[in-house]
Design a protein around this nucleic acid. Structure first.
Lengths: 337, 337
DNA sequence: TTGTATGCGTTATCAA
DNA sequence: TTGATAACGCATACAA
């Protein structure tokens, strides 16, 4: 067993007494190779500790077998869980996933990512926050892109999304069904652009209106910081406000848990004093105390669909953009009991 | 703006009226290039939508600028948090990080990973669970490896670890200081080999002995499943046992949170009926209700050190293996109040 | 300061 | 069934 490092295909070929091409054929089993030869080659590969050089292979073949998954924060429970599913689904199609952390970026950073790539990607699953600004630089890419979560206003990309409006509407109605009438909403950032957050806010609003409740601007709380600590502070504001709030719709489970913590800091009890519902059904939400009611999109479905889309588009870049929305259900847990 | 895709350096060169080599020099700014020429080249790059071909560059240069980070579960809060730190630290050194999910693998799978790489890596940060079985196949790798968390019994690799024994000992002593005398421990897997988990168990044991408490085998609970649900079940067992347990040391925060949930399912209150402490100080532990006391290793220090090690070893593979242990502190929160 | 020649390790093509 | 040849796109070494 040679110490490896720079064993090339030619070395293996020499060792096995065949041509490099035959080694290549064995490795990729492209054509029928004599059983004897194949065995000799395999033995030589083992003996030499040969490992294929991906760069050379990619350069020659034009494909890398790698798809990128760009997400804002790898440490976020939602993205972590989703990444694991994408990895699994991609493996079924023979693809490897390279995870990219974008950090909820704006245009300039997107461009940087696009240019500074050190990885050869066959395609990219892009879970972006700021699609509008992201699209121009991103369209220069040389590989297909599938958008996750957000939608491209111009409709130029495949995308898989979740039922943002319907999901939040159902969540809001669930609170109403549980007897809430002063329902606050926790959003993030501004609502001028039609982002995921805006869609979720719209779902909340329309559910209130459908059920004859008047959306009250005072009941809208905006996160100035998407971290858990930011959400916790929002919980403090809600607790300290004197608005008779008896229910809260948060735009994500992560935020919901932070808000719960903030409420708890102020001695507000969930669900006794106030009910609360999130969005995503991250694994943590079942474990949290109290466990968190939430909108649960079918994440596996979403991951599988995203991978299907990118794989098919890699195969044929000319097909027109396709769009899918993952099914969801409301999970009732202690936080809205 | 050409639609890109297969614009090569030669195309850019032609467009700018220079040689390919000059384009290369501008891109990598290796030698001094005339300001005029540089401007022309940059314009040509923008105009053509040129993007460097990483495969060709890597093939030629022998380096990819990418280090791998192999972790068992990307969805696990600890690994997610740690990955984010590694990405940051690597960027400082001009490296890109490719995250690899190994799934708490055994030898065969490790070999598979080693062989089936589709990424060209300059080095690998390996956060392994099963080091002993992992090492043989992994040593065939053609790039440097730094071990995280676990240690190589044979001492052949650089590694960065945390104070597993001292940390858990301090955690156990904290419980004793808080008045606990029947302290259970939650471990995972068998304790025959000197894994991270065994070290943490040893810390618990030695702290008990140091403080004149007898380690009771009945108070050791073993997870049969590292998931949150597994930990939750363990919480049920602890609650249902009639052993007078008044404190619990869990080998990780994730497990601790699952156990808390299990205790809560049975109406056991933390910290009133039972105190509980974890290990890792993941972001979730500050938010959890009750917030979780824990052993907090300096994760940023650990990430920075790991990146330092791999970068220096890439530069000079001949230096002897080095080993570091991250400092830690005990974080006191509600769960042991 | 810029250009020319050459080869990195692999695979597509075609010939034997 | 196997092998010879060329080429993928870039950067190193050296020459101009």
């Amino acid at each position: 067993m040679v110490k490896s490092g720079k064993v090339t295909m030619s070395d293996v070929a020499q060792l096995a007494g065949v041509s490099p091409m035959t080694v290549s054929n064995v490795i990729n089993d492209r054509v029928r190779v004599n059983e004897d030869t194949r065995a000799r080659v395999l033995a030589a590969i083992r003996e030499s500790g040969y490992q294929i050089n991906p760069s050379a292979r990619n350069l020659r073949s034009g494909r890398s077998g790698v798809i990128g998954l760009a997400i804002p924060q790898i440490g976020n429970p939602y993205f972590g869980m989703f990444a694991a599913l994408v990895i699994e689904e991609a493996r079924r199609h023979g693809y490897h996933v390279a995870i990219e952390q974008t950090g909820a970026l704006a245009a300039g950073e997107a461009a940087a990512i696009a240019q500074s790539r050190r990885l050869e990607l066959d395609g990219l699953l892009l879970s972006a926050v700021e699609i509008e600004s992201l699209v121009p630089p991103v369209s220069v890419q040389s590989y297909p892109i599938v958008l996750l979560g957000e939608q491209d206003p111009a409709g130029r990309f495949d995308h898989v999304t979740v039922a943002n409006e319907a999901g939040t509407a159902a969540a809001t109605e669930h609170l109403i069904d549980q007897g809430c009438s002063r329902i606050a909403v926790v959003t993030g950032g501004d609502l001028d652009r039609l982002t995921m957050i805006t869609r979720r806010y719209n779902g909340y609003r329309s559910a209130l209106e459908d059920r004859g409740l008047r959306p009250d601007p005072e009941l809208r709380f905006t996160l100035d910081d998407l971290s858990w600590e930011g959400a916790r502070s929002t919980g403090h504001w809600i607790a300290d406000s004197d608005l008779g709030i008896d229910g809260v719709v948060a735009f994500s489970d992560t935020v919901a848990m932070g808000v719960m913590r903030g409420l708890r800091d102020r001695g507000v009890s969930v669900p006794d004093d106030m009910r609360l519902i999130g969005f995503d059904n991250v694994p943590e939400s079942a474990i949290f105390i109290p466990s968190l009611s939430t909108v649960s999109p079918d994440h596996r479905w979403k991951a599988a669909k995203a991978v299907d889309l990118i794989v098919s588009r890699i195969a044929d870049p000319t097909i027109p953009p396709r769009q899918f929305t993952a099914p969801f259900e409301i999970i009732r847990r202690e936080s809205t009991a």
